[in-house]
């Protein structure tokens, strides 16, 4: 279902932007409070729940064994799936994964994969024969805006607290999945002509394009994505990149605080 965008909402967001204000009283670079819980789902080998305002997401990590690619016989694999199911908003419809949900899964996947936080070699069981496959599933239960950051935060938190179920597969003792770093995503949306961090539902509805930035521990870029209709200038990108550095550090601290 295509959501109706009230013209008045766009007008209102532009007026608020002119006064450097937002619908919910936040400042331009201020995020909503983030609640993070880890290891909450029976049957998932790693799990996390993130609540940001009206947004609620669950992420589960599962493992199974697979035959490695012949060109990388000792390397495990990673897969990230996302489904924007109709539970999450009246705008979502049932059916095969939409382009929007595929984009979500792939952007979260890239940030984790390209940061090199997972040692794929440590996921080898028998070289050339059997390796671990790590499967992350992003499950949005309530879309109140900025599901990208909520999913990325929950995904890395779930991975960092996941246990590889070796015993269940008869290949040794269970062990903690090892992660070398904590890539974190920050998303910005153009609302009323200027970028804001962590857009809420109304801001996304009446806003324009969005930019997702994933930064690693050292502040390096690991994935970028511009989504939706709209264009931006290099100066604007520089401005949000500087903000992303600050926000990512805060989120990283939150994620680490949940690790035993």
């Amino acid at each position: 279902m295509v959501q109706l965008v009230p013209q008045l909402l766009r007008q209102q967001l532009a007026e608020l932007a002119a006064n450097d204000e937002r619908t919910d009283g936040r400042s331009r670079w201020q995020g909503r409070d983030v609640e993070l819980e880890v290891d909450i789902l029976y049957n998932a080998e790693g799990s996390a729940k993130v609540v940001m305002g009206d947004t609620i997401v669950y992420v589960g990590v599962k493992f199974d064994t697979a035959t490695p690619y012949s060109d990388r016989p000792t390397s495990g694999s990673l897969m990230t799936g996302a489904e924007l199911r109709p539970v999450a908003h009246r705008k979502y419809e049932p059916g095969p994964p939409s382009p929007a949900s595929i984009e979500l899964g792939r952007v979260v996947d890239r940030g984790i994969r390209e940061s090199g936080c997972m040692d794929m070699e440590s996921l080898c069981i028998v070289p050339g024969e059997s390796v671990w496959r790590v499967m992350i599933d992003l499950h949005v239960l309530s879309d109140g805006g900025n599901i990208f950051d909520a999913c990325a935060t929950a995904a890395i938190a779930a991975l960092r607290t996941a246990t590889v179920p070796a015993k269940r597969f008869d290949v040794g003792e269970d062990f903690k999945l090892e992660l070398k770093s904590t890539p974190v995503m920050c998303s910005f949306t153009r609302v009323g002509g200027r970028y804001v961090y962590d857009a809420n539902e109304a801001e996304e509805l009446g806003g324009d394009e969005r930019v997702h930035i994933t930064l690693g521990d050292e502040g390096h870029l690991h994935s970028l994505q511009k989504g939706l209709k709209g264009v931006l200038m290099p100066e604007e990108f520089a401005e949000i990149l500087a903000q992303a550095g600050v926000r990512c550090a805060e989120l990283r601290e939150l994620i680490h605080s949940k690790e035993a």
């Binding site: 998932a44 589960g60 990590v61 599962k62 799936g81 489904e83 499967m135």
Partner: peptide
């Protein structure tokens, strides 16, 4: 009504979809 099991809800991952 749509009853759906999340992929991570069971001990072996379920492929998404009806």
């Amino acid at each position: 009504v749509r009853y759906n099991m999340a992929p991570f809800s069971t001990s072996d991952r379920i492929r998404p979809g009806f």
